[in-house]
């Protein structure tokens, strides 16, 4: 009996992500969910600027490439034209919570029926590891070489907690891909985020705590453990809006 199979929706191309980077796990989960829900032919994805800029090379669906931070606005345009299609964005922490925070907040406030997948790895991966809006206090990055100092660089932004105060969103959740069990939970929550859009015509955002072994200077397994042991202290996993 086959208990696991690579989703057909993933194209043949080998991911460009660094060894051990968990972007690939989230890509696979999204592909599995789209296949399972049988929505491939009516799904349109929006890729960000950042590490996932080439997501359209891997997911065999219609996709649009947005400029940095504007994926929610692009997705809004698509969804308003094609209200019966399933539209999702896939964005990193710099894209969603720094340059694109305005679009993030207002799209959520409008309650646009979209699914937003937010990869939080507490760093800018694509540009070699600068401070992200979600970099932890004390965390060393290329631009916080002495560790993020609240007096100088302020505090990490808790996107889920903030968006959960709005009336627009239907579902706000934070998950992790830092362990086997966490990955199984992430899959359930991501599926629910797609279901909300499809069945309830509602806005859903899932923040995924994800690794960046290269820029964290950690071995892939240590990076996963760091999510579970360190990152979740600042960013607790859970459902913030049901």
């Amino acid at each position: 009996m086959r208990v696991f199979e690579r989703p057909k929706m993933l194209k043949d191309k080998v991911f460009h992500y660094c060894p051990g980077c968990t972007h690939g796990i989230v890509h696979r989960l999204v592909a599995e969910i789209i296949e399972e829900m049988e929505i491939r032919e009516r799904t349109v994805g929006v890729c960000p600027v950042g590490c996932a800029v080439l997501a359209y090379d891997y997911l065999d669906i219609d996709m649009q490439e947005a400029s940095h931070g504007r994926a929610p606005a692009v997705a809004t345009g698509i969804k308003r034209v094609l209200p019966d299609r399933v539209v999702f964005t896939y964005q990193g922490d710099g894209d969603l919570a720094a340059i694109g925070m305005t679009e993030t907040v207002h799209t959520a406030a409008r309650g646009e029926p979209l699914t937003v997948i937010f990869i939080n790895n507490a760093i800018y991966g694509m540009t070699n590891g600068q401070m992200a809006p979600t970099t932890l206090l004390g965390q060393r990055t290329q631009t916080t070489p002495y560790g993020r100092n609240a007096a100088k660089e302020g505090y990490p932004i808790k996107v889920c907690e903030m968006l959960a105060t709005l009336d627009g969103p239907s579902y706000i959740a934070r998950v992790s891909v830092g362990s086997y069990k966490s990955i199984l939970n992430a899959r359930k929550v991501l599926r629910e985020a797609f279901r909300r859009q499809i069945e309830e015509n509602a806005y859903a955002l899932v923040e995924v705590l994800s690794t960046c072994p290269t820029n964290w200077s950690m071995k892939p397994r240590d990076a996963m453990d760091w999510i579970e042991n360190e990152m979740q202290e600042t960013f607790p996993v859970g459902i913030f809006k049901e």
Partner: peptide, 17 residues
């Protein structure tokens, strides 16, 4: 299939039991 679940490159393409 724990290996396939955690593999970030979906390089474990199938698990049969």
């Amino acid at each position: 299939a724990v290996c396939a679940t955690v593999c970030p490159d979906v390089a474990i393409t199938a698990v049969d039991r």
